[in-house]
Amino acid sequence: MAGLFRQGFGAMLGSLWLLALLALLALCACSPVQVLNALTPDSSYSKTAGIAYGDDSRQKLDVYVPRTALPDAPVVVFFYGGSWNSGSRSDYAFVGEALASKGIVAVVADYRLYPQVRYPLFLQDGARAVAWVRTHIVEFSGNPQNLYLMGHSSGAYNAAMLALDGEWLAAVGLAPTDLRGWIGLAGPYDFLPIKNPAVRPVFFWPDSPPQSQPINHVSRGAPPALLIAAREDDLVNPARNTGGLADKLRAAGVPAQDLYYARPNHITLVASLSRPLRRLAPVLDQVVGFVRHTPTQ
């Protein structure tokens, strides 16, 4: 994940404040995400880390509660990206802080990765994490009836599958209708045939099942969606994935908004949630607006 962040930051040039940050990253022995987290204040939240939602060491989550949390605060469960083969919840403290600073209870969940598991077992993990949140988040001032999923890249895929394919939540006694909505950042929703060699074994290429694609699970009863992408994303085609899914959702009568930003790339889109990089794009403002004013069907 650190390598992907370096590529993303390296592609973002052209302003003094970003150049200064890049210089800091170049001088620091830490990874870019460690720098972002080091520049992220912890005064806006209280954190409970390493809560188990299953027996595996990867089945854990962190909860970020706003310091001034109101009763029945909205809840966002965030799944990070990393091509289903890398990532850690500890890398995304800046996401937890961003949401908590706006009065949202944030949950950042780990899930099992390849080669330990392949599709669809990481979706089972996501569903179990959501079930834990529905049962326990009231203990953290969150409202389980005001629950959203959110993800970046492969994490956006996970969120999409949980929101669109009822099989995964049904296995834990829930349904997509238990979600108020979901948010996808640069998500792959329609990516067969698979071009990325690192992703191919995750989905049993060349026999990747069509049912693994979120776009094939759109139905009229799906929860509302906010889909955001980098206009010049060279890793996940934004027109095919974000645009294609948004169009299909709207055609089915599901409220769906798709937004595209010119300055971020695939990686820095999620990094724009952090305080140092929010000038890249108003992603946080759009997420908060969606949570506060979710459209209805």
Rank of each mutant, 00 (worst) to 15 (best):
S86R: 13
G87C: 00
G87M: 00
S88D: 15
R89M: 06
D91R: 07
Y92K: 05
Y92H: 12
F94Q: 07
F94D: 06
V95L: 02
E97P: 08
L99H: 05
S101V: 06
K102W: 00
G103A: 04
I104N: 02
I104D: 02
A106R: 04
V107W: 02
Y111F: 15
Y111K: 01
L113N: 02
Y114A: 10
Y114C: 07
Y114W: 14
P115M: 13
P115A: 11
V117F: 11
R118H: 13
F122V: 03
L123S: 07
Q124M: 05
D125P: 08
D125R: 05
D125M: 07
G126E: 02
G126M: 01
A127Y: 03
R128P: 00
A129E: 03
A129H: 04
W132H: 08
W132M: 09
R134F: 03
T135D: 13
T135S: 11
T135Y: 03
H136M: 05
I137W: 05
V138H: 09
E139S: 11
E139I: 00
F140N: 04
S141F: 11
N143R: 02
L147K: 01
Y148G: 00
Y148H: 08
M150N: 02
G151Y: 03
H152I: 05
H152F: 09
S153E: 07
S154C: 13
A156N: 07
A160I: 14
A160K: 08
M161Q: 14
L162N: 04
L162Y: 08
D165S: 09
D165C: 08
G166S: 14
G166Q: 12
G166F: 01
G166Y: 06
W168V: 08
W168F: 15
W168R: 05
A170S: 14
A170L: 04
A171K: 12
G173K: 05
A175C: 00
A175F: 06
P176I: 07
T177V: 09
D178S: 12
R180E: 07
G181V: 07
I183M: 12
I183W: 04
G184R: 09
P188V: 12
P188N: 11
Y189V: 11
D190F: 14
L192Y: 14
P193Q: 15
P193R: 12
I194E: 14
K195P: 01
K195F: 13
K195I: 14
P197K: 13
P197A: 15
R200G: 09
R200K: 15
V202M: 11
F203N: 09
F203R: 10
W205G: 08
D207W: 15
P209C: 13
P210A: 14
P210E: 15
Q211V: 13
Q211L: 13
Q213W: 10
Q213C: 11
P214G: 11
I215S: 07
I215Y: 10
V218C: 08
S219Q: 15
R220F: 00
R220W: 01
A222F: 02
